Amino acid sequence: MGRTGDATADILTARDLYRFYRSGREETLALRGVSLSLRRGETLAVIGPSGSGKSTLLACLAGLDEPDGGYVYVGGERVSHLPEGERARVRARRIGVLLQSGNLLPHLDLDGNIRLARSATRASGDPSRRPGIDELLEQVGLGTRGRALPRELAGGERARAGLAVAVANEPDVLLADEPTGELDGPTEQRILDLLQDRARRGAGVLLVTHSRQAVRIADRVIALRDGRIRP
Rank of each mutant, 00 (worst) to 15 (best):
M1A: 01
G2Q: 06
G5F: 12
A9W: 07
A14Y: 06
L17D: 08
Y18M: 09
Y18R: 10
F20G: 07
Y21P: 00
R22A: 15
S23G: 04
R25A: 14
E27V: 15
A30V: 09
G33D: 09
G33Q: 11
L36C: 11
R40G: 01
T43S: 01
L44I: 05
S50G: 08
S52V: 08
S52K: 09
S52Q: 12
S55E: 02
S55Y: 05
L57Y: 03
C60F: 09
L61C: 13
L64Y: 04
L64D: 00
D65I: 06
D68L: 04
V72E: 06
Y73E: 15
G76F: 09
G76I: 12
R78P: 14
V79K: 14
P83M: 09
R87A: 13
R87K: 15
A88E: 12
A92S: 05
R93F: 01
R93Y: 04
L105A: 12
L108H: 09
L108V: 10
D109W: 10
D109S: 06
L110Y: 06
D111C: 01
D111Y: 15
A117P: 13
A120L: 12
A120S: 08
T121E: 10
S124A: 14
P127A: 01
P127M: 02
R130Y: 05
G132T: 10
L136S: 07
L136Q: 01
L137W: 08
L137D: 04
G141Q: 05
L142H: 02
R147T: 12
P150H: 13
A154D: 11
A154C: 09
E157Y: 10
A159M: 07
L163V: 06
V167F: 10
A168S: 12
A168T: 12
N169D: 06
D172G: 08
L174S: 04
A176S: 13
E182H: 03
G185V: 06
T187K: 02
T187M: 11
E188P: 02
E188Q: 14
L194T: 00
R198G: 02
R200K: 07
R200D: 00
G204E: 00
L206Y: 10
L206C: 14
V208D: 13
V208E: 11
T209Q: 14
T209I: 11
R212A: 15
V215D: 03
I222H: 06
I222A: 05
A223R: 15
L224I: 02
L224D: 02
R225T: 07
G227H: 02
R228T: 15
I229M: 15
P231T: 09
